[in-house]
Amino acid sequence: AENWDMPTPYPEGNFHTQNIIQFAEDVEEATDGELTITVHSNGSLIEHPEIKNAVRGGQVQAGEFLLSLLANENAIFQIDSVPFLATSYEEAGKLWEVSREKTEELLAQQNLKVLYAVAWPPQGIYTTEKLQTIDDLSGTSFRSYNNTTERLAQLAGAVPTQVEVPDLAQAFSTGRVDAMITSPSTGVNVKAWDFLDYYADTRAWLPKNIIVVNQDAFDALSPEVQEAVMEAAGEAEARGWEMSMEETKTQTEVLAENGIEVYEPSEELRDSLLEIGETMSAEWAERAGEEGQKILDAFLAN
């Protein structure tokens, strides 16, 4: 019997992690214990930024990471984080459909085989003051942690402010930042109500976590076990997207229950945001080149 180590970045209670734990159990059951997978959640074995390379080098056999973390390697990995391009689960699913092949091809160059990907709940804007128009963001300190969030903040007239995860709680409670864009899940995890009051359900984008295995480790399995893994992966993908939708609903409710005012952005705000989205789509297409444009066209075609 074979045992795989599988590092994941998010805590045990996170729905992505729960889905992976279920996946590991499914694999063990389907293969009669021929293949067992030990899930090391919360970056406890390998930290998030190193997970991809650890799988690539064979230090661990499988792993999960946020796909857009690889944006600086190739802009294609970032397509799910272009603001206001795909703003619903349906659109995000389509976007994954048209970009999957290219993503798999790029990761295969690093000896990585894609098992599946699951979207996070859509991203909304948390603030201390309710947003009526885009001008209300002007001059606010807006948390940025990558080039998408920095550019978004700039285009919205806000002041992009870099805050690292360990400094997050302190930065908000001391007022070093007063706005952030993230999912309802993350908002609940950091107990956003301790320091923020409003949540604009902007559905800006649905980033994805991707689950990969080391190609050599996969090839070393018997064909039956390989098949069982792929089957369990297919189920996990379908289950994960369902879980994510459920998560959006329940976590948005949790935000409201804890006193955060959840609201739909006004027409005016929405228009300004979409305008920013168009600018950023164009900028992304430029970075991603011909291959990116092809994916974009395929997505916009249907």
Partner: peptide
């Protein structure tokens, strides 16, 4: 390895 695979940092 980092050189061979053109690994770059994530983020800004």
């Amino acid at each position: 390895d980092s050189y061979r695979f053109n690994d770059v940092s994530s983020g800004l």
